[in-house]
Design a protein around this nucleic acid. Structure first.
Lengths: 214, 214
DNA sequence: GAATAAATCGAACGTTCGTTCTAATTGTAC
DNA sequence: GTACAATTAGAACGAACGTTCGATTTATTC
């Protein structure tokens, strides 16, 4: 009954030690994931305020009130979407970085990871990009924390690359995030816009730009 | 009576040759400008869909229905805001570039112009950054055209700086816009965040990053 | 100061929104 | 097949939205 609340907010497993009924249930998770995909589509297209729960429900093949079985509010839906995206980005980046030591290769991995996820999940990234401010209170704080974690991953990679000045490295990290997140405004997957060259030229820009003292 | 429509959409002067009554009237323009400032504040804070005409009216010290004396719809208000911002950005950049020939100096001027306008009008730039997709039809087309004009100004400056490859120059221009437009997500004017160093490091990054063949 | 235009106001309209509630349906274990 | 929980459906709520309209106030011209 309070399943949705537990899952999306705390992600804590039901610690009931009764028989063998999988607590959240794989079916529940699959349905929830479907709804989040629909939500990403609608919110990316209309913005969070402009997206109606009714349209998310329709595109998720569920009734309007059915949404509220999985989320206690529209805002919690947005929170779950952003939380999923950032935790995925962080864990994928950390996995891909493991064992790689060469600084330029590590930067390439970070850029590839981010843009690769954008190419396959453009709506999710666009929503995370646009709608942080649509969250309030605890939701806002927790997503902000995840963004900081992700930011730290990228900054530590840039720090190894060139200058040792912390302030400059921080600025460069923020500039890089700008470049990365702006891609959705111009990248057109229907044109033969080579995704690999987008990645390569961005890496080149920062490899050359970060190095060398003035 | 249909003054608002003429001004905001076509900007055509009333060609009545009667005596000496200034057609649009400076008072009309001043009031319209006040309302647009209020609109920028509210839309920057709540997003276009989330911003209510009622709140814009209240912050502009005018009644709800008074807004519709100046704009025929909420969407036209957003259009006027974006049009003003981009035409200002373009004309300021062109003026500042006049007579300057050194490529690096020209890039510095472009970055200074954009960020300087952001530091003094953060709400307006945030709105332009976020809400292009909230416009439809003719409004959308005309703002898109202005963005392209501004993009061309910046691209031509970057083209003089280094590589002669058109495709790479276009990519670098888009990366630069990303870095520039992302600033509003992290720049805090209350902290002693030195705005000049933000400009300088970004210029350095692109001066070094654009040059040199792989 | 009367006449005309510019600017503002207050009330109301139909619509859509997020959310809730209760009942019905489906799946699952004995 | 009966009992019970998980899941969905339908109808309804009050609130807030963009927009319109007629009347009223303010400014301008003679």
């Amino acid at each position: 009954m309070t399943q949705a609340k537990k899952i999306t907010l705390a992600n804590e497993q039901a610690d009931t030690s009764i028989p063998e009924t999988l607590a959240p249930g794989p079916k529940f998770q699959r349905r929830l994931s479907d709804i989040l995909t629909a939500a990403a589509e609608v919110i990316a297209e209309r913005g969070f305020e402009g997206a109606s729960v009714r349209e998310v429900a329709a595109r998720g093949s569920i009734g309007l009130s059915g949404i509220y079985y999985y989320f206690k509010s529209k805002e919690e839906m947005l929170f779950a979407l952003q939380r999923n995206t950032f935790t995925t980005l962080i864990s994928k980046a950390q996995t891909a970085l493991q064992g790689i030591t060469e600084p330029e290769a590590r930067l390439r991995i970070v850029v590839e990871n981010h843009l690769g996820y954008f190419f396959s999940h453009p709506q999710e990234l666009k929503v995370c990009f646009h709608e942080l401010d649509s969250l309030n209170g605890e939701y806002y704080k927790r997503v902000l924390q995840l963004r900081r974690e992700y930011y730290d991953v990228v900054r530590s990679v840039l720090a190894e690359l060139g200058t040792t000045d912390e302030h400059i490295t921080s600025l460069n990290t923020l500039y890089l995030f700008g470049s990365l997140n702006w891609v959705h405004m111009w990248y057109d997957s229907t044109e033969r816009n080579d995704s690999q060259s987008v990645i390569e030229h961005l890496v080149n820009l920062y490899v050359r730009g970060v190095n060398a003292t003035p």
